[in-house]
Design a binder for these strands. Structure first.
Lengths: 194, 194, 194, 194
DNA sequence: CTATAACCGAGACGGTACGTCCGGTCTTACG
DNA sequence: CGTAAGACCGGACGTACCGTCTCGGTTATAG
């Protein structure tokens, strides 16, 4: 996956977890850029080398932490109605972002992506695949149900949804709440409904 | 400007400019997080102290650089048609992002905003005001012209537009080109057209 | 004298004094090496430039301060007896070192002398001349009175006296008190008495 | 040594030596006060942190360097005659001061002692112990041999010798040569010979 | 059932940059 | 026009982490 794992890795699962949790804890309390590998190691009671053994750098470590927080299964939904599907999905997602440091990690990873092309690719793949599997599914089923235009530019629509969310995630100028979930899904569907 | 300058300060305008330009050059060549104040100072032929005298930290310096790159005047538009207005606006904006390191700076600032509440507020204010003045204006005139719903949630729509752009700006999974400008404005207007 | 004063100096005597006094005060409270020109200027209510205008550097400023503290007149003595002369002289000197920051300044100047040949020369001249005029006088009169050997190596003897004092001045391992004055003069005279 | 090294520390002896030698080299070429930790680190090919890890500050580093230059063994002497002992001792010492930067370091340490009480204590202890072991020994044996007064104030006499040396060391107004060694020991012994 | 190799914590190491202080020079505005 | 105020470039401070590198000590297969 993200890190080059030798075949017969004998990695200590306990330490591995302790590191991930330390990373999650620290990012929550001081933000991505202020979390140092040194601090994670100390907090996890691990040696720095142990971290560098399993992850290339901070970005890959946090990529794994992010994935463990925002897993695809948590977001699966199928109510039989686009509007409901979308709204439920958004509310679930907002919940995750409220309860976990996923947002802080995401901004950090995005920042890393500006410099590190590999990390960028990983993030894009991760988001695209998640999107295809989850959000895309909602619209594909909606097309099948003939709720929305069959030639809807799903990628574009999904970019608009994700984008609006990112904006609030990153700027926190307005809350990611139920009202927003409703307004956003309504506005989007208004543009593509049959 | 970003910081309130008391009258007494006798700042050297030449040095000031050299620093801003060095910052812009360096961010372009190595990305926000890898630009050090030390490097900017050296590149500008300035002392570090001089930078710290006028800007609290890297974030404020780059906020000023960003504002100098993406000024409101450059984005003003009024063709008499929502679609045209929006498309023109987007194309202008995309041009700036292609020709300047504004995108790299923006991601950096967003990252800073996660940790520094003051910077977050500054960024939000800057974007909100820009949006009100420019993008908001497009839709207000459109409402006046009765092109779009008078009760359009402009803030939401603008969040969707900005968000979709940010997504491509940050992830670079798809280009910010004329096609995108067209598709995006069409999709948005489709949801609010009378 | 110590500083290169242009002929038509129009130096403000008040400021001049304030600077010297600030220097004396600060050296007393934090030691020679921790006194900065910046601090002296601020403490004296003067501009840094003003200091640099009148003294080449910290060393010259303090050389002048030192001379103002340990002037030759204060040390003149003539009781008619070597022992008494020497003891009185030493007690007077010890008094000055106890009441003024002269000792702190002297160590500083000595330190500067290691690097700056000009300062070294100034200090040597100052001390040699003082010694010739004051301590040397004591022994010359003693020779005239036939109290001590006429071929006494006065320079050597004076070096031994000054040296023993410097040692206690610099190391503070033993006090510069009346007992020491007595023992020192006795020990010295024991080696040269007729 | 100057600092108590806990067992756990696994200090790199090679680096340690390189730092000490760099310090010695640099103090020789530019004098104590102009040697920066930064320069020592660079010259030794070491990180600054490594220096700060093992020595509290410049003073302690140079204290160790000084001790390595002026070790007690080098000065041990026992000819069976006070005069010879003393003269030999002085000539050995003068040799060290001529061949090594010990004098430059000593003035630096004396300067530090004015500000830092701990360093002062260290220096005093070092000199006192050295004096007791070496110079003191010379006079004790002389008393045993009944060459000098049994109630000689050894401390005072040693202060006079050391002091006279320091004076020439610091002021360089006269050389530390064989003539001086001879005159000094003769003059001293003249005051205490039975 | 060893033994041996990968694991682990600890932390030293050469570096880079931080944000601050001060040195010594130069500029501005007041009195 | 001398002075205070203080901006300026530059160099060093002492600190925090980076990512690499031993160092012993501890598992946990593979022989």
């Amino acid at each position: 996956m993200s890190e080059p794992i030798p075949k017969k890795r004998r990695r200590n699962q306990q330490t591995h977890l302790a590191i991930m949790q330390a990373a999650a804890t620290l990012v929550e309390e001081r933000g991505y850029s202020k979390v140092s590998i040194e601090a994670i190691a100390k907090h996890a009671g691990a040696g720095k080398q142990t971290i560098y053994r399993w992850w290339t750098n901070k970005a890959y470590l946090f990529l794994e932490v992010y994935l463990s927080l925002v897993s695809e299964e948590k977001l699966s939904v199928d109510t039989g109605d686009v509007s409901d599907d979308l709204e439920t999905l958004l509310n679930t997602l907002f919940g995750i972002y409220q309860e976990t440091p996923a947002a802080l990690i995401l901004t950090g990873l995005v920042q890393e992506a500006q410099t590190d092309e590999k990390i960028r690719q990983h993030i894009v793949d991760m988001l695209i695949s998640k999107r295809r599997g989850v959000v895309g599914g909602v619209f594909e089923r909606a097309i099948a149900r003939q709720e929305i235009h069959p030639d809807t530019n799903i990628n574009l629509v999904v970019d608009m949804i994700s984008g609006a969310i990112w904006l609030r995630l990153f700027l926190r100028h307005e809350p990611l709440d139920r009202t927003f979930a409703q307004q956003l899904s309504q506005q989007v569907i208004a543009g593509i409904r049959l």
